[in-house]
Design a protein around this nucleic acid. Structure first.
Lengths: 177, 177
DNA sequence: CATTATCTGGAACGAGGAGTCAACAAAGCC
DNA sequence: GGCTTTGTTGACTCCTCGTTCCAGATAATG
C-alpha cells in the first residue's frame, strides 16, 4: 500500500512490491494473482485504515459541524504529517486508473460513496435538529465535502503546509451555512 | 498532451507518444531530449490552453462572485464534456510525479500559483468595493477556491455528472460569504 | 520420524520499456 | 546546381517489466 501511494500504480514495479513487503515474487502472485490484485487489496486496506475511521468519527453523535470539522482537520493532519511523499490512494487511483480499470473504478466509487453517505446522514440529522440551517440539499452538501477532501489531498500534495490546509478547511466549513 | 492526460506519465510509453504525435521516435528525442522533457512541454501547453483562459476570465472586471462562478462552472463544463477519459494534467502530475521530479513540481506550483494569485486579486478588489463581505483572508479564500477546482477534477474523474458537479460548485460559492 | 502437502523465492521468459544511432531526405545558401 | 546543414527515420541496444515455474524449505499429519 505504501509503495503504491508513493509511486502510483504504473510507477510501482513488482520488484518494488517485493522489497516493500519482504515477500518473494512467487508468494505475492500466489496470494494476489497479479499486480492488479495486489493493488485492489491495497485499496481495501487503505479504505480500512483511512476511510472507515472518518466514517467512525461521523457516527460519534456530536454536533454536526464539529464532526465535519473533525473529519476535515483530521485529513489535514494526515496530509501534513506525510508531506507530499505519500499520496492518497483513492485520489491517485481516480486520476490514473479509473478510466482503464473498471474494478478499480468500482472500488474508488464504493469508498467515496460510503463516506458521502455518512456525511449525508449527519447533515440530514443535523437539519432535523435545527443545528444546520436549511439551504442546499444534504446530498449536494455531502458531495461538496467529498470534493473538499479531495481538494485538500491535491493541495497537500502540491504544498503540504499545515496552516494553509487548516485555513482552507475552515473556509470550506463556512459553506455549510 | 492528450496521451499523458489519458494514461498518466508512467502509463504512457514513448511508442504511444509517437503514435499520438505522428512524429518519429528520433525526432521526438531531438526536439524534447527525453520523455520527461516532452512531459514538461505538455504541461506548458496544458497551462496555456486551460489555466490561462481561466485567468483571463478573472481579469474581465465583472463582479467578483460572477467571475468566480464563471471559473468554477467553466471547469465543470470541461470535465463534463471530457467524461473521465482525460484527466487534468496538473492534478495528475501532483499525484503521480510531484514527489519524484522537482522540475515537474515547479511547473505544477507555478501554474497553480498564477491562478491562485489571480483569484486573490479579484477577491481583494471585490472587498475594497464592498462586493464581498470581510471575513476570511483573501489568501485563504483564493487557496480554498484552488482546492475546490482540484476537488471538482477528482470528483469528475470518479463521476462526471454535470448536475452533481454544478451543484458542488454552487455550494462552494457559498463559502465566499 | 517419515511422508505428504504446502509454501517460498530466485532464476528464467517473452514482451515491451526508454533511449541511441547511422543512413537518408529536405531545406537553406552561395 | 552542388554543398552544407538541419531534420527525420526506424531498426537496434540494453534494460526492466509482469508473470511463470520449479527446486528446495517449511509445516502438518499419523
Amino acid at each position: 500500500m505504501e509503495a503504491f501511494r508513493a509511486k502510483g500504480y504504473e510507477g510501482t514495479s513488482v520488484q518494488d512490491l517485493v522489497a516493500a513487503t519482504g515477500v518473494g515474487r512467487g508468494s505475492l502472485y500466489a496470494a494476489f494473482g497479479s499486480k492488479e490484485g495486489l493493488y485492489l487489496a491495497a485499496m481495501d486496506r487503505y479504505r480500512e485504515k483511512h476511510a472507515l475511521p472518518l466514517i467512525g468519527i461521523l457516527r460519534a453523535g456530536a454536533p454536526a459541524r464539529e464532526l465535519i470539522r473533525e473529519v476535515l482537520l483530521g485529513t489535514v493532519d494526515v496530509i501534513a504529517q506525510d508531506g507530499s511523499r505519500r499520496a492518497c490512494l483513492i485520489v491517485g487511483a481516480a486520476m490514473e486508473r479509473i478510466s482503464h480499470d473498471p474494478t478499480v473504478a468500482a472500488h474508488v466509487r464504493a469508498t467515496t460513496t460510503s463516506l458521502e453517505d455518512a456525511l449525508y446522514e449527519v447533515i440530514v440529522e443535523a437539519r432535523s435538529k435545527g443545528e444546520l440551517p436549511a439551504g442546499r440539499s444534504p446530498r449536494d452538501l455531502a458531495r461538496y465535502l467529498i470534493a473538499t477532501l479531495h481538494g485538500l489531498r491535491v493541495l497537500g500534495a502540491i504544498n503540504p503546509d499545515r496552516a494553509s490546509l487548516t485555513a482552507v478547511a475552515e473556509v470550506a466549513l463556512d459553506a455549510l451555512g
